[in-house]
Amino acid sequence: MPRRSYDQYCAVARALDAVGDRWTLLIVRELLGGARRYTELHADLPGVSTDMLASRLKDMERDALVTRRRLAPPGAAFVYELTGRGRALLPALTALADWGAPDLGSPRPTDAVRAHWFAVPLMTRIADHFAGGPGVLDVVLDEGTFHLTLDGEAPGYREGPAEHPDARLEMDTATCADLAYDRLSLAQAIAADRIAVTLPDGTADGAHA
């Protein structure tokens, strides 16, 4: 299908030509966590049809936002991953998360929840607090575990625990939401015993509070 366009000589319009369709930015959110199989994407995008997801991924390949490659054996499956242009959308997603935060109250009965959905807004909050400190942090919620990479030129997140985390943060979903959307500072959460910080040697850490 030909690419749809607003046909406006405007950078905002050009950006929306590429990422303004429904589901596109949520696919970017998922792929910021690393390469994903089609089935993994579909599982973490509840509500999207298989046809819609396939169509959006084709559009994103065409627009050089994602690439598709085959894993080496024994996996031999295809995975999708962001290009540099796709990864450059991280600040835009962070800004959108901040803008949408006032509308995010308690989860509705129909709301799906995934632990890693908090990763994008959480990166900025955690990075500000741990400046010059831990570079890789495990975040443990009831819904699952993900880890944040805060140092280097490519901050990001991955699902599951890190192989060698610098610290481990355990909290409930409500605390993570309050922290991610700037309703609570990390220092306040630690002081109130809403977050448990554990260092690699297994000791609790109160130094960052």
Rank of each mutant, 00 (worst) to 15 (best):
A101T: 09
L32I: 05
G156C: 11
G202K: 03
A77D: 14
W99V: 12
A35D: 13
L16D: 07
E81I: 04
K58W: 14
T50I: 04
G202E: 03
G33K: 01
R14G: 09
V136L: 15
I195P: 04
P2N: 01
P46L: 02
H164M: 12
V140P: 01
R62T: 14
V139H: 06
P121E: 08
A11P: 04
G33V: 04
S55P: 03
W99C: 12
G34P: 01
L65E: 09
S185L: 06
A180G: 05
R14K: 09
A95Y: 02
D205V: 02
D51I: 04
L169Q: 04
L45T: 00
T203S: 13
G135A: 00
A187R: 15
D142C: 09
R14V: 13
T145D: 10
A11S: 13
V140H: 05
A72R: 14
Y80W: 03
G84Y: 04
D59C: 12
W23D: 01
A95M: 09
I27A: 00
T145C: 08
D103P: 00
A196R: 15
Q8F: 12
H116N: 09
G34V: 05
V79M: 02
F118W: 09
H164L: 06
A191W: 10
R108F: 07
D178Y: 10
D201N: 12
G105I: 00
A15K: 13
G20K: 02
R62H: 13
R158Y: 00
G202D: 01
A97V: 06
G75T: 07
I126A: 15
D59F: 14
L25D: 05
A13N: 08
T203E: 15
A180M: 07
R3E: 14
L71C: 07
I195S: 05
P165H: 02
A154D: 13
G202N: 08
L25F: 09
G34Y: 00
V136Q: 15
D111T: 01
G86S: 02
V136K: 09
H147E: 08
R4D: 13
R36N: 01
F78C: 04
E153T: 13
R29I: 03
H208Q: 11
S106F: 15
T110N: 08
L104F: 14
L169F: 12
D103Q: 14
W99T: 15
